[in-house]
Design a protein around this nucleic acid. Structure first.
Lengths: 217, 217
DNA sequence: ACCTGAACACCGTTCAAGT
DNA sequence: ACCTGAACACCGTTCAAGT
């Protein structure tokens, strides 16, 4: 029959838009998401999206926030018996896992929580748990921020292929210590995991030093 | 009299393009750089740029690399007497300062050195110095990577969604006073600086713990 | 070699018009 | 309220043509 301009049931919803956009980001990357392409994927015309989101950035923010919502926060529950060190470690691992599952969203997430509800919930949970563990509020804020720096920085630096898998890009005359940089690219994932683990351990060990000085005072 | 298609002296050079692009990025942000806009700024037509760079990404890479070139590496010189801890700290502070000077380039830089010469030189210097200090090569690689994660992650999380850049997004009904956004920006900057300092100290303290265990073995 | 205009295949967003 | 096509002001990039 005839195509109606407005069906009795809306064709679109925020949920459906975010689901489709997320799938597109995961499979084809951030650049594949244009309003026209996304709309086509949803079976509507481009401008229809503007009935549900103010602009494209809001759609991408919602996609990113769905990833933040996957981060496990149970280690920060009041009832959880984990030491703050263990909780912080387990949380960082869960956070990184969420980013690993959706590497293409990292450039959006790495810019901070902004006004994204799930992102803010993560920040709030870390802050609350650190304060309960005995950290002064100002330090608890710092810990939440610096952990996020490290985790998102790691995810961004890892997935974006920090080194190129091409030996000719690294002339040993220019970079005497990078002779095996192409091999480094080959084993990039291993290196990134190792660097993440080393850094995470160092971060928590170092915070422990500051914590001990704190409780002693 | 007549306008020539090819003057005896080239109108463009890679240097001039990068200089103009850098100024545009610094003053108006990454999004302000379009090939047409940049070309207009240079007094030429858009396609002219393709005689000097393969594509726009290469121009942006060159802009980012100019920032990497500003990072002080003297603390990693063979003659320098600084302890590896102090060298790492001083380098991190210099690195962050370079990013602070050009916050709009951080999204490009945070993706890793790629094949950018100055970025690779930085990675090479850190690696070499850590190995000379007694770290095993695998650990030296990790240290270079994890420090970069933290520093770029910090810069991205701080500057990209700073309250200053975001000012237009605030509803004037909620923030009727002009000073409000400024206060938020100032507080955010303080938090970011504090988190960076706390994190940097923790990272180096934590690495020290691992180093002590290493030399004892 | 280096620059040009024209052209191609796109963009994000607005808006009047439809139901 | 929610979707449409048309329109506006852009994009990055290719390419034949000019000198």
């Amino acid at each position: 029959m005839c195509r109606m301009a407005r069906p009795r049931k809306p064709l679109l919803s925020r949920e459906r838009i975010v689901e489709t956009a997320s799938a597109l980001v995961d499979t084809e990357g951030l650049d594949a998401v244009s309003t026209r392409r996304l709309a086509a994927e949803l079976g509507v015309s481009g401008p229809s999206l503007y009935n549900h989101f103010r602009n494209k950035d809001e759609i991408l923010d919602a996609v990113a926030d769905a990833v933040s919502a996957q981060v496990d926060l149970s280690m920060f529950d009041e009832g959880d018996r984990r030491d703050w060190r263990t909780a912080l470690h387990d949380w960082a691992v869960s956070y990184r896992a969420a980013l690993t599952d959706h590497p293409n969203t990292v450039p959006v997430l790495a810019r901070g929580p902004g006004r994204r509800p799930a992102g803010l919930k993560v920040a709030d949970a870390v802050f609350g748990a650190m304060v309960r563990a005995g950290w002064p509020p100002a330090q608890a804020t710092h810990i939440g921020a610096l952990m996020r720096y490290f985790i998102t920085g790691s995810a961004l630096g890892s997935f974006a292929r920090g080194f190129v898998d091409d030996e000719s890009a690294y002339d040993p005359a220019d970079y005497p210590h990078l002779g095996q940089a192409h091999l480094l690219a080959e084993r990039q994932q291993k290196v990134d995991e190792g660097a993440f683990e080393t850094g995470l351990r160092a971060l928590i060990d170092g915070l422990s030093v500051q914590y001990e000085a704190l409780v002693r005072a």
